[in-house]
Amino acid sequence: MILEKQLKGTRAKRPVIIFLHGFGRKRTGELEAFQKAFEHDYDILMPELFDPEDPRDSNGILWANRALHVVEKELLKQRQVILGGFSMGGVIASWIASMLPVEKLILVAPAFDLINLKNTGNILASLITHFTHLDSPQEIANFNGLPANFFQTLIDVVVQFRPYASRLTCPVLLIHGSQDGIVSPQSSKIAFSRMPATQKQMFIIENGHHVMFEDEGVCQEALALIQLYLNDQIVIRKATPAADTVVD
């Protein structure tokens, strides 16, 4: 009985990782590799931010607040919360981490600046065209069939919440793929340079594409970097001009 209580206490004290999915029909389905890699040592929560079958669920503030409420709930339990986000989820995670006392922040291909966002008079048409002419069959299937108004919601979320990256003071790990065809790695470099956090590190993974956890060529490398970060084995140093150099 005593041992059982001790085990229950140990489980209750496990840190929780809240990881936010990106834009697309698969939602948390894109994060299965991440969940499998860390569910043994952490409680993993991955809230669904929107319903891809409901065109009326197109309020970006509501999408973001669904994530916010999950983080607030765990903090109220006095849990150690590690927050992460992929693509659009990374933008929302940055907003939350700028306000709430999360232990660490993990950003994977955060969508701070969608490719072609500024280079067209018809942003919505450009995004739909770009997303439905991708090279990867997985990415094409993920975007096809989404309500058309969701693409505008994506733009609204990115524009509204990306400024909060410049307010981050918690430890940050940022990972981006060099061959990302949806979100430019340069946008992560710019956002990273503006983060006031004194503990931060960024890695550009060579030949990595956007959906990194489904990219067999780089998935394990991305997971290994995250594991090192969670274990405090990646050198976290105070920000200096030299320390902010991006590691390729």
Rank of each mutant, 00 (worst) to 15 (best):
M1S: 10
I2S: 02
E4A: 12
L7H: 08
L7T: 02
K8F: 11
K8N: 14
G9Y: 10
T10N: 13
R11F: 04
I18G: 10
I18V: 14
F19Q: 06
F23S: 01
G24S: 11
R25T: 04
R25P: 14
K26F: 14
T28N: 12
G29Q: 13
G29C: 11
L31C: 08
E32R: 14
Q35I: 03
F38S: 04
D41Y: 09
L45E: 14
D51N: 12
E53R: 09
E53I: 00
R56G: 03
N59E: 04
N59I: 05
A64C: 04
N65L: 07
R66M: 01
A67I: 00
L68Q: 08
L75C: 10
L76P: 00
L76A: 15
K77Y: 10
Q78Y: 12
Q78M: 06
L83W: 10
L83T: 04
G89D: 04
G90C: 09
I92E: 06
I96P: 06
S98C: 08
L100S: 03
V102S: 03
P110V: 01
P110R: 04
P110I: 01
P110N: 01
P110T: 05
A111Q: 06
F112S: 07
D113I: 04
I115L: 14
N116I: 12
N116R: 14
L117W: 11
K118R: 15
K118N: 10
T120K: 15
G121D: 15
L124P: 13
L124H: 15
I128V: 15
I128C: 04
T129E: 10
T132L: 07
H133Q: 12
L134H: 05
D135W: 14
D135H: 11
P137R: 13
Q138W: 11
L146H: 12
F150T: 02
F151Y: 15
F151K: 09
Q152R: 15
D156N: 09
V158F: 13
Q160K: 15
F161H: 13
R162P: 02
P163A: 14
P163D: 15
Y164T: 13
Y164G: 06
P171E: 09
L173A: 02
L174P: 00
S178P: 11
D180K: 04
V183E: 08
P185C: 08
P185F: 06
P185G: 05
Q186V: 00
S187K: 07
S187C: 05
S188L: 05
Q199D: 07
M202Q: 14
M202P: 05
I204N: 10
I204W: 07
E206I: 10
G208T: 15
F213P: 03
D215C: 00
E216A: 10
E216K: 10
C219H: 06
L223R: 08
L223S: 04
Q227G: 05
Q227S: 10
Y229Q: 02
Y229H: 02
L230R: 00
N231E: 09
D232Q: 13
Q233Y: 06
Q233I: 01
I234T: 12
V235F: 03
I236T: 04
I236L: 13
R237N: 06
K238G: 00
K238N: 01
K238S: 01
A239Y: 01
T240A: 00
P241I: 00
D244L: 09
